[in-house]
């Protein structure tokens, strides 16, 4: 059926089964490939996007439930790759293979928007749904603190 998705402030008219996971609508229908597939059962966080301010796993979110909401993906974080989270990620060389990092960054952006100065425990809790097989967790943790500093400046 015909659906309208608002992704990064832009309306996308797509034709999709309403039960299709939002992930595949974003990737295959809207052509935004920054959001990744990792597990399909909301256990790894590679597919994390922000819907109405909340970090959600798009791989098991039916596309119909996202209609009328504001969807943000990695492509909408900044124009110039210069959001404080992106700058902190670059400064502390967080990504290795990089595949999970779109999801990590979206979770971090959502965290900092509701809690501008999270503690280590709050970071652990907010990021617990994002798996990184390269083990970049220590750098992610440090980079979230750094992004909080950069946001204040």
């Amino acid at each position: 059926m015909a659906l309208t998705l608002n992704i990064n402030g832009e309306d996308f008219e797509i034709d999709a089964d309403p039960q299709m996971p939002l992930l595949w609508a974003i990737r295959e229908k809207a052509g935004l490939n920054g959001t990744k597939f990792g597990c399909g059962i909301a256990q790894c966080g590679s597919c994390t996007v922000i819907v109405d301010g909340n970090a959600v796993r798009s791989c098991n979110t039916p596309v119909a439930t996202a209609v009328g909401k504001s969807i943000r993906t990695i492509e909408g974080v900044s124009e110039g790759n210069d959001h404080p989270v992106q700058l902190a990620w670059q400064e502390l060389t967080v990504p290795q293979c990089g595949y999970c990092q779109s999801g990590q960054i979206m979770s971090a952006v959502a965290l900092l928007e509701r809690n501008p100065e999270p503690s280590d425990n709050e970071i652990d809790k907010a990021m617990a749904g994002n798996v990184c097989r390269c083990g970049t967790y220590p750098r992610i943790r440090a980079a979230i603190h750094r992004a909080a500093e950069l946001s204040k400046a």
Partner: peptide
């Protein structure tokens, strides 16, 4: 390759 991996 770091910058390419912070904006998807």
């Amino acid at each position: 390759d770091v910058p390419l991996k912070t904006n998807g």
